[in-house]
Design a protein around this nucleic acid. Structure first.
Lengths: 195, 195, 195, 195
DNA sequence: AATGAATGAGATTTCATTCAT
DNA sequence: TATGAATGAAATCTCATTCAT
């Protein structure tokens, strides 16, 4: 229903790239249009105001997450394997599009407007619910230890995932995210498995 | 050596507050001066340029961390207890000054300038080294499990700490950080203790 | 190659006028835009920075000089007549556009930036070379006395030309530059002619 | 009557230096005070407003000229020798204090205020009258040719003097002003002498 | 005689946005 | 669908000047 035109996608992608590389303060209509190679007013053919571009970025993230969530939970696999898939999927996506990584876990960027921060909260909740459900199921099937609440386990797992991505980004992508990420997951697995 | 005058401290504190409440984009000289109750040019008596205020914020964080690190590591206590102290210290500090929490784990905010992001990286490394050393010592003294590398354990612990603070902030400080934080720590303790 | 748009020319002309009438310190974006009747930011559509306006003024002068030089030297006339043409051309141009006179011999105005003063030096050298060549030719053809070096003769001629224009300007254009200027030239001619 | 205190002289000298080196636009209270090594308000102990510093500079020039004029005209010498003395005096003074040269012939600098440009006009008239009188006397005593009006001769002489000083300054003082200046005067002498 | 702190006015420049074409 | 020209608002920063100490 809410699908974007080619130019809109281009504007969204370029905006993500600019935020990732130069920070939100450099995300100006001028910079977007110059990077794409069109004039400034041309942007306004595709988005009524700048805010709509930011909302589109978040909507893009949300859709993305929902697709991943559906893909993962629809598969017939153990809970542990589901989380593993989730992790690997994430790392692959970020490796392919580092700019995404710079924006997706940076809720602060979107703090300056109510509508934006609402969207951010929504996405965060969505993520949490997904992982929470997987963990709960894993605990019920005795795959995952249940002496620790699913809420706290999810914070621990998500926290580790986010932090390694942040480090990767702040290190200027100087290590291989997939390798390191999978290593981290192996450790997490040891910690949460029901023994 | 690098100590700030009263007015400078006031400007730094107000800037942190503004970033926390309204985002970095609202951190303008006008907003700072209006909040403090002085004129815009008056700011320039205390900081040569706006960038210097941001650098001062980071320098303030760095000093803060070093003090905590020294305090913790100087105490004669078990590694587990040291991390626990660190956690509780953090939670207390953030509860007392929520604005700090909004800025301290938001590396993205300072991405728009080379000097700033260098400082951010430095602070992150400082934090990491401190926790890494505590864990390593704990592993050697058989307090902390050593089937998982200290590097990965530190990511897991730090990641959880950061994420719960982020959630607290994004939820508009709607839960008691100390209570929830200590609960999370109890769970982490279970996970990492040598059994 | 380096031709200006209509608006750019308008901005350049108005800038020259402002410098002439009120001095370089009154050459502000606000004054330029107000004089033209557009908004301040509109100026920036046509020149990226203020400095570029000043550089454009100098470039305008340089081109102007080159055109005059070519016109004069291409004509088949005696050296004395060439200098006379040059003088009369100058006086006519200044009479028609007094603002130009106020700026063209005021190298000091452009001393505040390296790039500007370089351009100024270049223009001065261009002028000097042109008159030097004419004098040298005149000395070889025994029109002009050769007991004084061409370099010194050129300083004497140029100096007189500049000073009378300066006086005219500082007197608020209170005398007829062409009449007085031609009178001065007649005297100079008496002095330099080979007898 | 109108003599300056030590600090005032210091401020005047530093101001001339700043104008010479960086242009009138860099002559700010901040720059003056920083260069001298005192605070900004301290300047206001010695001059009520900035304009007064500029007026003081001009008054300094005026007095200077009057002293030279008196010195020259009081001596019992031929007109030619008087002009020569005048030239040599100038060149010596400028060589010793190049900053002075940068300001003394730059009437444009002081165009931005009525009181300033009045002073400038006055000084110029003073200079002119002095040289005019010498030439007139020289013409009456048949030292100087009288087929050219004293007014035009004075423009020619003054113009050459000014231009060589300007060149010296714009060339970054790259040649010896005294040597070149005396050479130029020798040529001028040939031109104006009654033969 | 000097300074630290402050300020109103104003400078250059950028931003999001609009409009006529 | 796109652009050239423009603008009100606001950002950073500088300037001359004042005042209490």
């Amino acid at each position: 229903m809410n699908s974007f035109t080619g130019r809109q996608k281009e504007i969204i992608d370029m905006s993500i790239k600019i935020i990732a590389e130069k920070g939100i303060q450099q995300l100006t209509i001028k910079n977007i249009s110059k990077s794409i190679g069109i004039s400034e007013p041309a942007i306004y053919r595709h988005f009524k105001r700048k805010m709509d571009i930011l909302l589109a970025i978040l909507s893009h993230f949300k859709k993305n997450r929902q697709i991943i969530a559906e893909k993962i939970t629809s598969r017939e696999m153990s809970s542990i394997m589901q989380i593993e898939s989730l992790f690997i999927d994430h790392f692959k996506q970020f490796s392919a599009n580092p700019a995404l990584a710079a924006v997706i876990f940076s809720e602060e960027i979107f703090q300056n407007d109510k509508r934006l921060s609402e969207q951010v909260s929504l996405i965060m909740q969505l993520n949490q619910k997904m992982i929470l459900n997987i963990i709960k199921a894993g605990q019920q099937s005795h795959e995952i230890r249940n002496d620790i609440s699913e809420k706290q386990l999810s914070i621990i797992i998500m926290g580790a995932l986010r932090l390694i991505v942040s480090k990767w980004r702040l290190s200027n992508f100087s290590f291989d995210l997939e390798t390191e990420g999978i290593g981290l997951w192996e450790s997490l697995k040891k910690l949460i498995e029901f023994n």
